[in-house]
Design a protein around this nucleic acid. Sequence first.
DNA 1: AAAATATTTAATCATTTGATTAAATATTTT
DNA 2: AAAATATTTAATCAAATGATTAAATATTTT
Lengths: 203, 203
Amino acid sequence: MAKAKKEELDLSTEERIKEAASIVFTKKGYGNARTRGIAEEAGINLALLNYYFRSKEKLFQIIMAERIEKLFGVLGPVLNDESTTLEEKLEKITENYINMLLEHPDLPIFVLSEIRSNPEQLANRFQARKHLTESVFVKQLITRRSDISPFHFLMNLLGMNLFPFVAKPVLQPIVGSEEAYRQLMEQRKKLVPAWMKLMLDQT
Amino acid sequence: MAKAKKEELDLSTEERIKEAASIVFTKKGYGNARTRGIAEEAGINLALLNYYFRSKEKLFQIIMAERIEKLFGVLGPVLNDESTTLEEKLEKITENYINMLLEHPDLPIFVLSEIRSNPEQLANRFQARKHLTESVFVKQLITRRSDISPFHFLMNLLGMNLFPFVAKPVLQPIVGSEEAYRQLMEQRKKLVPAWMKLMLDQT
DNA sequence: AAAATATTTAATCATTTGATTAAATATTTT
DNA sequence: AAAATATTTAATCAAATGATTAAATATTTT
């Protein structure tokens, strides 16, 4: 066996294909992505892509799982941190999301639009409801405001953090330059938690 | 000439193709949509689709223009209504959006994801910034709160209204049934304007 | 070094898919 | 009714595209 070599290449060729696939899938979506385009982006042969990943579909599944984790993996640890207050969680989530999305602006639209056209894969999210409702975050929230639905609260938090990136192709030309848009996002790191706190303290 | 006939069929065959195209494009996106699928959905022959619309691309452009108008056309008249207060505008926009999106839940994700993979078409939005900054809405806003950026305010309003639909494929399984989700959206007709007013009255 | 295994490529296949063509049918106009 | 025009279809084309194959090259193991 060519173990050492293989391991090394797992971090070069195979990883390069995944990197390329991530770029092309994210930019074009599954349907508009071309395996030849991915191969070219990775600087390798088309056959090699199939050699490593068997098919476009399989490669996509792998990339998709990673992207979903990247988009929602942020939440779990923060939501269940016993050592932070509700306010600190709002600040942390916002900070994490905006930093991450400034790096990967089209991640949300990619994940959400692919899930829309292939909703089956979501079956495994059965326990998401349970995990959420039993989270420290939700407990803290209903202790503070038993009258506010955690779903609404979470929709608002995610909406204010993710939506500006989801709608960036539309909003950025309105706002102006790329840089102006980035500055708005930077401002939102402080603003979003402040707005969320208003809802929390609403009388 | 077969004028009367033609007019009549403009409202049946041609319109049926557009209806089918709208359904298929919206559900699958341009890349995953098949002209044969659209033809089948419309109950007509593939050649007929090309006879009426020349190509998939042309048909798509027509549908896309209609969908964009549907998604953002709501805003203009309300934002420029001299006879309503800022609060009333928030209520009206929210009411309009939620009603429309309950009918067409995957409209936002479709439009936004297609624009992302084809941002050129957005060049015509040059004046959107001007129209927005000169709107009655923005004037009212800066009169009331010169310290709040209209962009942030609009992002929040749109985010709270559109995001729950953009993220529906992810959030609805968490919330529970389709009906439960619809009820949450109904509640938001009152809640979103209330939250927006909090920002407006923030001290 | 030789054998075994892993990696990479060029060439090719089969299917899908958007589009066209030529002919048939329907409708309108004269 | 006849001619003109519009609508519809079946059959087919050409290009794009995902996938495979067989052979060549590189690497690791013995």
